[in-house]
Design a binder for these strands. Structure first.
Length: 107
DNA sequence: TTGCTGACCGACG
DNA sequence: CCGTCGGCCAGCA
């Protein structure tokens, strides 16, 4: 049996599954991992995403409102919205437009 | 082991 | 509309 993966690894794995032009929410990932209500863990894991050897598209993860709450952790902060728009996701005032249409549920 | 932190969410007034 | 609080729990000093 393979070595047991940390929750962080599982989170990163889910985030990598997000297709281009799609986004998901912290709560959705937390719920998918069976830790519904602990969306904080997802965000906290994202903070460590830079520590991963494999790139993690953290810019595709937004909060429940479709707001780019984690943009301040990017360098530069505008990069998050720019990456999303580069993939076809419209971002206005740090908020994802047509959120229900670009929302991707892990499964 | 204990205590603190946090890129969230929902409820309350 | 706005601020505040509780809950959730892995990681770290």
């Amino acid at each position: 049996m393979p070595a047991e993966e940390s929750f962080y690894q599982k989170i990163y794995e889910v985030v990598r599954r997000i297709p281009e032009g799609k986004v998901t929410s912290y709560g959705a990932i937390a719920e998918f991992l069976g830790r519904k209500g602990s969306a904080r863990m997802v965000g906290y894991a994202m903070n460590n995403s830079h520590n991963q050897l494999v790139p993690v598209p953290a810019h595709r993860v937004v909060n429940r409102n479709g707001l780019l709450t984690g943009k301040h952790h990017f360098n530069p902060p505008e990069l998050m919205a720019q990456l999303l728009e580069n993939e076809g996701v419209t971002v206005i005032d740090d908020k994802v437009q047509d959120f229900n249409q670009v929302f991707w549920n892990p499964k």
